[in-house]
Every structure is written in structure tokens, then in C-alpha cells.
Amino acid sequence: MEQAPHAPGPDGAAAPAAGGPGGQPLQIALTVPFPSPVEAEIAHWFLTSHAEPRGPVRQELDVNGSVLTVRLTAEDPGQLQMSITSCLDQVSRVTRTMQRVVPPFFAKPQQDKGG
């Protein structure tokens, strides 16, 4: 994503930096469902303890039940895009690793199908 050059405003001053409507910061939220709350908490712990510095991009992580939510907020669309790519890569690594490593007893119990 490229940022357009700042054109002068009506008074000749430079236009404000890129952002959302009305100069608001840009934000994206990613929700990742996990098979169990324990796995969501493990992913949360891993992502917060191994977080890469994102400079002017703010990252918030939250777990609600078995769903991990990641929010990224930035003023600059290019920086936000780079952080989104990095975040998706980290979430992908965590989920792949957990699929291979997390013991089955952490998984959500299966309901008996009756009979």
C-alpha cells in the first residue's frame, strides 16, 4: 500500500498525515477462534511474551473464552499494513505449533454422540 504525497490544503499548509476518516487512527481487529480457552490463553501468552516492537503501531490482545482478539492501531497505513503482515505470520506460527504440540487433553471435550 503506498501513501499519496501530501497536497497543500486550501490555506497552503500541508495536508494532515494519513489516517482514517477525520484524521482518526486506522484500526484492524483480528479474531482467532481456538478449540479451547486454554489454547487461546497459551496463544495470548506466546504473542505477548514474544511481541516484536511495532514502533508507532499499538497492539492489544484480549482473550474471551476460546477466542483471541488482536487489535492493531496506527496513524500510517503503510506501518499498519506491515504490522498486519507480521501479526498474521506470528498467529499462523502459534496455531501451527499448537496443533503439533498441545496435548489432546487441553482440547475441548467431545460430546458423546449418544446411542
Rank of each mutant, 00 (worst) to 15 (best):
M1R: 08
E2F: 01
E2L: 06
Q3N: 10
Q3G: 02
Q3P: 00
Q3R: 12
A4S: 05
P8M: 07
G9D: 09
A13S: 13
A15Q: 08
P16L: 10
P16F: 10
A17I: 00
A18V: 04
G20S: 04
P21V: 04
G23F: 05
G23A: 04
Q24Y: 02
Q24W: 02
Q24H: 09
P25D: 10
L26W: 01
L26C: 03
Q27G: 04
I28V: 15
L30P: 07
T31C: 06
F34I: 09
P35A: 13
S36F: 03
P37A: 14
V38Y: 12
V38H: 13
E39P: 01
A40E: 13
A43R: 12
H44P: 05
W45A: 15
W45K: 08
T48D: 03
T48R: 07
H50T: 14
A51Q: 09
E52N: 05
E52K: 11
G55K: 06
P56M: 02
D62K: 11
V63R: 09
N64V: 12
G65H: 02
S66A: 15
S66G: 13
S66I: 08
V67I: 09
L68G: 11
L68N: 13
T69E: 14
R71Q: 08
L72F: 05
T73Q: 04
T73N: 02
E75A: 15
E75Q: 11
E75C: 02
Q79N: 05
S83R: 14
S83M: 07
S83F: 05
I84G: 00
T85F: 03
T85H: 03
T85Q: 04
S86D: 14
C87Q: 13
L88E: 07
L88G: 03
S92R: 15
R93T: 14
V94F: 06
V94A: 15
V94H: 02
R96G: 03
M98H: 03
V101N: 01
V101P: 00
V101Q: 06
V102P: 11
V102E: 07
P103I: 09
P104E: 11
F105Y: 12
F106M: 15
A107S: 13
P109C: 01
P109R: 11
Q110T: 00
Q110H: 05
Q110M: 00
Q111P: 06
D112E: 10
D112I: 08
D112P: 08
D112K: 13
K113V: 03
K113N: 11
K113H: 05
G115E: 04
G115R: 02
